[in-house]
């Protein structure tokens, strides 16, 4: 059964935590009074897993290992921190536009003003407003002088 990665799980660190959590669950002898993490609940809901048992745990672990091996991960620097819903919306857009299994490591830097900087393993895409302003510095100065 092909699993889907929910938008709330967006980076490899979360995947490793899930893997650790699932591994602990699999090793428990009497899984009672267990509180699942939000991410595990999200993962279960997103994939229609009604009951967490050894079989589903193994399937999820296999899915997470695949993601850790194959998912492309980028670093995205934003000017301001998105809320959970906004981040989920952003992840949905990014996975639709770039890759369904995309993982993102977010960094916040207000000096970008707006937009973002995307770093892949081999390149940097600076789409920030600060960069745009510096690129158009001459226009800015000209307009300031003419103002």
């Amino acid at each position: 059964m092909p699993y889907r990665l929910p938008e709330s799980i967006y980076n490899s660190s979360q995947l490793r935590q899930l893997k650790s959590e699932l591994s602990r669950l699999r090793n428990l002898r009497s899984p009672k009074n267990i509180v699942f993490s939000n991410n595990l609940q999200e993962l279960a809901v997103a994939n229609g897993v009604g009951k967490i048992n050894v079989a589903t745990i193994n399937d999820l672990l296999k899915f997470i290992d695949t993601l850790l091996d194959e998912s492309p991960e980028i670093t995205m620097t934003l000017a301001s921190a998105p809320g959970n819903d906004e981040r989920a919306e952003l992840m949905m857009r990014l996975r639709r536009q770039l890759d369904p299994k995309l993982l993102v490591h977010f960094i916040i830097r207000p000096e970008l003003l707006a937009g973002c900087v995307v770093r892949t393993k081999t390149a940097v895409f600076d789409m920030s407003l600060a960069k745009a302003l510096r690129q158009n510095q001459q226009k800015l100065v000209t307009r300031l002088k003419n103002a």
């Binding site: 492309p72 980028i74 536009q97 770039l98 890759d99 995309l102 995307v118 892949t120 393993k121 081999t122 390149a123 895409f125």
Partner: peptide, 8 residues
Amino acid sequence: IKKDITNA
């Protein structure tokens, strides 16, 4: 970006 990710 997609091209770069795919190549990577």
